[in-house]
Amino acid sequence: MAEPVIRVRLDELLKERGMTLTELSHRVEITVVNLSILKNGHAKAVRFSTLARLCEALGCQPGDLLTYE
């Protein structure tokens, strides 16, 4: 049985806002590599500060960014 996971909806939010990963990387001051790790679900944990910066840059709430599957 597959373990339940938290998925980061970065791809969808970026598409909705017509923003690229590199652009987001500049706005939140997180490397593209780390954002890719986050986007692909390889991150083990997210700092509140990172989450806050992403929400600010994407104009969304944490609940819009994370889904439980």
Binding site: I30, N34, L35, L38, A43, K44, A45, R47
Partner: peptide, 8 residues
């Protein structure tokens, strides 16, 4: 360490 390194 792995968990810390994988924290973004």
């Amino acid at each position: 360490l792995e968990e810390v390194e994988a924290t973004i």
